[in-house]
Every structure is written in structure tokens, then in C-alpha cells.
Design a protein around this nucleic acid. Structure first.
Lengths: 249, 249
DNA sequence: CGTACGTTTGATGGGGGTCAAGAAAGGTGG
DNA sequence: CCACCTTTCTTGACCCCCATCAAACGTACG
């Protein structure tokens, strides 16, 4: 039984089931790989009803047993690991259409917390079912390998950022990355709302919240962006790009 | 020079190929998941003859088309990404029994360079063949998902290190990590040879080579380790562990 | 044996962490 | 709608860690 958010819950025809898959949570998962209608239907039967997660709630926490991946149907999450001595490191921010929980496959335990930064909805994908299905649909198997690989590449990018870039370069890269991801989803690339605190940005970028705040203020002074609390307007994206590339190591 | 392989390179009968799979390059891949002899044989037919890579040579480079994963049969590699403006970030060091190239699945192009830091041997695993086989051997499919997931978890650990730790903590964590991985492979945990330069260590840890050198010297002064060029002897592993955990945030 | 590369160590300076205080925003209950 | 409180954000002052620059030394290799 799959429900679908922007479609009324009671209206559960097959057509809408498929739509839910294509349009929302599994956009990245299904749409680009060209499954047949029949295969898509099989995939849909796997997916449980969309589950709402309120802002501040955990989708899962480190240490919990792993059963499912989660596709974000709508909303915004942070993923973070806590070290033994209590330090938090935000490992990623995830938005509509992205898949979470792939880190948990390795040990059958979640290795990080996933916290909703706004009211969200996720679709649960039981992993063993998914594995079974992907054996029968080669293209789906390949796509899952690709998704996990993409996560690795993304992490390498963050490592480059943390290892090589100065504070302002990191912030610039972060803003451009968000901008691009919003744009892909049909939102404005030049104006968006930050769902996370300065502290969470800082944790992700290896900076203190004061440094994040200062950098944003400086960008505003220089006319690169406009900051109004968590509303960001990108005035001069080219200057931001230049900032990242110019500072030769 | 390089340590001697368990099996002479020239002796490549089927039996030895299988042994090579079990004992060396694919230790992590095959051994722990309990394949039947028949399945193991199928896997072996997939694997090409061990290929030697000399010190300094590239196993692959960023941008090259992706065809295969590589299992390190013997040796030591660094993986690194180069940013558009020429900055190098070492994303990992890989030793015997580990799998390289999983980042390339996402785009069918290698996204990083893999450079041998000592004379090495790798087994090539053509990825499409591997996918096909893993469809018929569920446990193999699951294991590959796990391996990729493990890579993600590992990267999260590095992100924590880069985002939260001070120079000496990073070095301590790095040394302990190497120590542990050597120990798993049956080598000494307390005494080992660094295959990489101070600069490469620094790149991996987000530090400059001088800082790496200074930290090692300081550890030696304090009796935690003994450094003799690239030979490291760990005198007081507990003190190193404490170093990582004590420095609260 | 000499050149090149890698390493160590010192001196210096700056980027960003830390501490602190005040301002702004958001949520809650009356 | 307002008063109140909490959380988040901004800005300033100070200082420390680590990058940078520089020089000398050790080691590997042709």
C-alpha cells in the first residue's frame, strides 16, 4: 500500500502509485534509467506508504538496525556522525529525491543520524526486497551501484573541500552547490532558504559558526550575495565561482 | 624492496589463481561470505591474471573510461583527486586485499588517480561481468553493496577527522589506522614502513608536510613512537588513542 | 660521487578558533 | 496581538595553531 502526499491519500489508483514513484521520492532512482511500466509497477509494490517526519525528528539514528533505505519524497535532512568523544560532524545535507541510509549497508547498522530540518516525507525501501528485485532487473541493480558510487564521489569532493580550501572558499562552494541542487529540482538557483543553522553549516564545512556568519557578512558587503537571516540571494554567482578557483593552493 | 608474494608470479595455474583469490587480492571479497567451491570457481574465471604495477605507475587516472574494479593482490596505492585549479587531495591509501575504483561506477569514468607507492600486483575485475555474476550469486551482490557502503563509512570517518580534529590528533588517528590495517593482514601492528611521503600524508590529512614532520618528531620526543625516516615504531598506542579522544572538541 | 628529492627544524605571520556580549528571530502561552 | 523566553545570529577583541618561508641535513639513485 503506497500513499502519496500531494495526491489525496484515499485516491490510490495504480496510476497514482506510479506517479508517486516517478514524480517524487524516487525521481533519481527510477526516472533516468528507463524501466518498463511493468518493472516500475514491481518497484512500486516494494515501496511503503510515504511516512511523514516532522522537523527536528530523526528518521533513524546511529546504532539502530538497518532494514531500509529512505528516499526523500519531500523535505530536507541532515546526516551526521557523532564521534566517541561527542563531536558532531555533519556528513551531508539531503533534499527531495535523494536517497539516504546507504552507509548502513556495510554493517547492518545505521552509522549516522538522519534528522529532518523541515517537515518532510520519506518513502521506505526495504533493502532485502530491493536487492531481490534488482537481481531480476539488471538496470536497477546497476543503478543502485551507481547511486552508491555517486555518494563516494560526493564524499571525495567534501574531503577536497575540507582538506584544501580556506573558509570563504568553502562557504562559496557550499552556496553554489545548494544553488545548483535547488535549480535541478525546479526551484530558484539565485534565491533560496537555508534549512540549517550556521552551526550545522560550520560542522559540515569544518568551520565554527562565527566564521560562517562572518564569511556570509563579508560576501554581502562585497555584493556577492544578500543575506537575510536564512534567506540567501545569490547576486554574483560568477564571483563565487572565481573565489573557489582563484585561490591557487 | 617489496615484500615477496606468497605465490610466485610466474606460477599461474588455475589452482593458484583460485588461491590468489582466496589468499590475497580478494580476501575481503570472497573469504568472509562463504561462497561454495563452484561459485568460487565461477568467480575465478572472471578474474584476469594478476597484473604488476611498478612503483610510481598509475593503475588508472581520473578521466579514463571505467571498465574494471581492481583488487590489490599485493602492494600499496594512493588514490587522489585533482581539483580544477590543480590542488591534489589524497582520498585514501589502499593496501593488499582492498578494492579500488568503486568511485568510477557512477559516471563510467575514473574520478581519481590510483598510483602505486610500491611495486604492486592487482587483479582486474571487469565490472559488467561482475554485475552479471552477482545477479546469479545473491550473496556476492550483497557483498558488493557492502563493500561500497564500507567505502562511504570510511569517507565519513575521514570527514570527521578533517572537520574536527587538530593536527596531532589527525596524525595519531592516521598511525593507529595504518597499524590496525597492517595487523589485520598479519603484519606487525607496532612497527611498519610508511609507503608515502610526508607530503602525501599531509594531503590526506589536510595538513602541510612540515606539520606532519613536526607532529611525528613531537610524538617521538614524548616517547609515543619512534621514527626513523619512514619506519615507524609505535611505543605507546594507548597514549595515541588517548590523544584522539581526550581533546574534547 | 653529485644531484635531486625528501625531511627536519627554526622564525614569522595570518587565518580562523575562542570568548563574550548584544541583537534579531522564532516559538509559546496568555 | 503582545509579552516572554529561547534559540540563533552577528560583531568585536584576542590569541593560538598551523601555514608559510627559509635553510640545512639526510637519503636515494643515477
Amino acid at each position: 500500500m503506497t500513499t502519496t502526499p500531494h495526491i489525496p491519500v484515499r485516491d490510490l489508483s495504480l496510476k497514482h502509485l506510479r506517479q508517486s514513484c516517478v514524480n517524487c521520492s524516487l525521481r533519481e532512482l527510477c526516472l533516468p534509467i528507463g524501466l518498463s511500466t511493468e518493472e516500475m509497477r514491481e518497484l512500486d509494490t516494494l515501496i511503503t506508504q510515504a511516512k511523514p517526519i516532522k522537523r527536528g525528528e530523526a528518521l533513524y539514528r546511529a546504532g539502530e538496525p538497518f532494514r531500509s533505505l529512505f528516499a526523500i519524497r519531500l523535505g530536507f535532512f541532515k546526516a551526521s556522525v557523532i564521534s566517541e568523544d561527542g563531536r558532531e560532524q555533519v556528513t551531508g545535507f539531503h533534499m527531495t529525491g535523494e536517497l539516504m541510509g546507504m552507509d548502513a549497508v556495510s554493517s547492518d547498522l545505521h552509522t549516522c543520524d538522519a534528522i529532518a530540518l523541515e517537515d518532510s516525507e520519506v518513502c521506505e525501501l526495504p533493502f532485502t526486497d530491493m536487492e531481490e528485485l534488482s537481481r531480476r532487473i539488471p538496470i536497477l541493480q546497476h543503478h543502485f551501484y551507481k547511486l552508491m558510487s555517486r555518494e563516494i564521489v560526493r564524499d571525495h569532493g567534501v574531503m577536497l573541500l575540507l582538506g584544501n580550501m580556506k573558509a570563504e572558499e568553502r562557504i562559496a562552494a557550499f552556496l553554489l552547490n545548494l544553488s545548483q541542487r535547488f535549480a535541478i529540482r525546479g526551484y530558484s538557483a539565485s534565491s533560496f532558504h537555508l534549512r540549517m543553522t550556521r552551526e550545522e553549516i560550520g560542522s559540515y564545512l569544518g568551520l565554527k559558526l562565527e566564521t560562517v556568519s562572518r564569511s556570509l557578512s563579508k560576501f554581502q558587503e562585497n555584493g556577492l550575495i544578500k543575506v537575510q537571516n536564512r534567506l540567501i540571494e545569490i547576486i554574483n554567482p560568477d564571483a563565487l565561482k572565481q573565489l573557489i578557483n582563484n585561490c591557487q593552493q
